[in-house]
Amino acid sequence: MQVTMTVNGDEVTREIEGHLLLVHFLRDHLALTGTHWGCDTSNCGTCVVWMDGEPVKSCTVLAAMAGGHDIRTVEGLEREGRLDPVQQGFMECHGLQCGFCTPGMMMTARALLDRNKEPSEQEIREALSGQICRCTGYTTIVRSIQWAAAEEAGTRTARGAESFGHRQIRRGGLDRAEADDRGEGPELSRRHICLPARP
């Protein structure tokens, strides 16, 4: 059968079998491998994409069911070469370790912030309650989303991540920029990693 849907703003049409799942359609037919395929049982949430603006678990939606609908994947978060604040927050606050859960976490987080500009930590945790981080890095995931919320609010109130008590990491007594200048740890020094301030 033929299916047509909008994926990240582009209309796509493909010949598929009725039993094809949306997650496999995105990964195998469209080569959009940012959406991960995890537990297959709608428990882990790494496959979360948006369908008409709402997060859904794409391992439990048929590609055929998405026909005529608007799908947005993690690849669609970036706009004109600029990272979404949620993506930036995950970089700033070490929101990922292995990265497997990250696409689903970020799609759910983006949807949450679109509905609720200033979610409490409890609201963030509830929103993510259908998603599993196998590295158990929930604390930094929550912090990343708080960073993104503050970043977005900052455009109005000039409130920054400092209000969440983050501090810049210093490695071997060197500031990141300094380390970068000396050619030490360039990968790590591209971004500042946020850790909670010591009491």
């Binding site: 949430g45 709402e54 997060p55 859904v56 678990k57 439990t60 939606v61 509830e126 259908g130 998603q131």
Partner: peptide, 9 residues
């Protein structure tokens, strides 16, 4: 019941 993403469907 389940989680917020499942509840969307």
């Amino acid at each position: 019941i389940a989680d917020p993403v499942v509840r969307n469907r």
